[in-house]
């Protein structure tokens, strides 16, 4: 259907519109995924620290 990669990228003369639209959607979804993954790591790390502190305190209390 397309006459080579150049023809595909040109999108029948609508390249800025088509790629601008698809590019922003890709960027938006990528950014959402990355931000969510970072927040997930942070929350899990915080809970893991709390749980370690709690079990350390429990072990300490048992020792006394």
């Amino acid at each position: 259907m397309w006459d080579g990669i150049g023809d595909f990228l040109a999108m029948g003369g609508y390249a800025p519109y088509v790629w601008g639209a698809f590019g922003m959607v890709a960027l938006g979804l990528l950014l959402e995924g990355l931000l969510l993954a970072r927040r997930r790591r942070q929350v899990r790390a915080r809970l893991q620290r709390q749980s370690r502190r709690r079990s350390a305190a429990a072990a300490h209390n048992q020792g006394e």
Partner: peptide, 23 residues
């Protein structure tokens, strides 16, 4: 669903289940 999971964890940080889920 993922965001709701993170939100659920961060709202109940001191519970046994959340700390188990975090690891």
């Amino acid at each position: 669903l993922r965001r709701a999971q993170v939100e659920a964890l961060s709202r109940e940080p001191r519970t046994e289940w959340a700390q188990a889920a975090a690891v």
